[in-house]
Amino acid sequence: MNDFREYAGSRRAALRRTAYLLCGDWHLADDLVQDALAGLFVHWRRVRAGGDVEPYVRRMLVNGYLATHRRKWRREVATAELPEPAAADPHDDGTRDVLLRALAGLHPSQRAVVVLRYWEDLSVEQTAAALGCGTGNVKSQASRGLAHLREALARSGALEGEPA
């Protein structure tokens, strides 16, 4: 299992960043990556022999993320008292917050399409395979998600030259 250790060690950080862009929470991203890699460990020999390790992990990661949205206990719960607000980052000009809100405003599957297409640089076919849907669906979701993000960023002025 040394090869698994080597693979996990080299890919963990990148997978964690993708997971964070999917869920917007570093702790949950750690959970998602650990879950996906633990699942890969179980089927490591078969998946490695098939030569499709990366698509397998990516699909497990996306499935784990979508599953967290299906679980009832993961959903937001209204409370009477607001939690303590995070301290403002002096280096943040607000773009980060705008982008996080814009991503959070996307449907989970739409968000997954945007992240896989424009962060992981996957093709339409690879994205469709990772999500288990058709290429037409990926194209339409990517187009709508991209428009949503650009609109949000343009409103905040983060994208120079983009129409408001």
Binding site: Y20, L21, T95, R96, L99, L100, L103, V114, V115, R117, Y118, W119, D121, L146, L149, R150, L153, A158, L159, E162
Partner: peptide, 11 residues
């Protein structure tokens, strides 16, 4: 789509 990718990289 480099603008979106850059914005995601910032996150």
């Amino acid at each position: 789509h480099q603008d979106v990718r850059s914005a995601l990289a910032e996150l």
